[in-house]
Computed example of a mutant assay.
Amino acid sequence: MLGVFVGGTARLLVNNEGEAPLELTVEPWADAYQILPGQTCVVVTHSPAGDGSWSGTRRKNEPFEVDHRRDSVTVWANGHCFHLSDGAAHAIDAADWYCPARGADS
């Protein structure tokens, strides 16, 4: 997994390098998705703060917190919304239709 922060937008790549589907749950929305073997999912969230800062969870100013288990990953996105795309930047879903434009650059 790799995180990238740009202004008030943060991206987290979740790769499934295993041989079985991996369940991805995005909290606090409790939205669950399956990532097939060899696939990558990009979790994007946007800071609710005007200055682009993050509330964080256990550590201050962190856009994500990740819990990994053998067959699942839970991502806590600390923005006001999130959206998912695949490794080719095709939109998968959004928890908030008021999320800024979706895609590779959002």
Rank of each mutant, 00 (worst) to 15 (best):
M1P: 05
M1L: 14
L2Y: 01
F5E: 11
V6H: 09
V6A: 05
V6C: 07
V6F: 03
G7K: 04
G8S: 13
T9I: 03
A10R: 04
R11I: 01
R11Q: 06
L12W: 09
L12R: 12
L12Q: 07
L13G: 12
V14E: 11
N15R: 14
N16S: 14
N16K: 10
N16F: 13
E17R: 10
G18R: 11
P21W: 10
P21G: 06
L22T: 07
L24N: 11
L24R: 10
E27Q: 15
W29N: 00
D31Q: 14
A32P: 03
Q34F: 07
Q34N: 12
I35V: 13
L36Q: 15
L36E: 15
L36N: 13
L36A: 15
G38W: 05
Q39I: 01
Q39G: 07
C41V: 15
C41A: 11
V42I: 15
V42F: 04
V42K: 02
V42S: 01
V43A: 01
V44I: 07
T45D: 08
T45A: 04
S47Y: 02
P48H: 00
P48M: 07
P48K: 03
A49R: 12
A49E: 12
D51T: 12
D51A: 04
S53I: 00
W54R: 00
W54Y: 04
G56C: 04
T57C: 05
T57Q: 12
R58D: 14
R58H: 14
R58K: 14
K60Y: 13
K60Q: 09
N61R: 12
N61I: 05
N61H: 13
N61P: 07
E62N: 05
F64R: 05
V66Y: 00
D67M: 06
H68Q: 14
H68W: 09
H68M: 14
R69T: 11
R70W: 09
D71C: 02
D71V: 11
S72E: 15
V73Q: 08
T74H: 07
T74K: 08
T74S: 11
V75H: 00
V75F: 00
W76Q: 07
W76E: 10
A77G: 08
G79E: 09
C81G: 03
C81W: 00
F82R: 01
H83W: 08
H83D: 11
L84S: 08
L84V: 07
D86L: 08
D86Q: 13
G87N: 06
A88F: 07
A88G: 12
A89M: 02
H90Q: 06
H90C: 01
A91T: 09
A91S: 08
I92D: 02
I92Y: 09
A94D: 03
A94E: 05
A94L: 06
A95K: 01
D96C: 02
D96M: 01
W97D: 12
W97A: 14
W97E: 13
C99V: 02
C99T: 01
P100R: 01
P100T: 01
R102D: 00
G103T: 13
A104N: 04
D105Q: 15
D105F: 10
S106A: 15
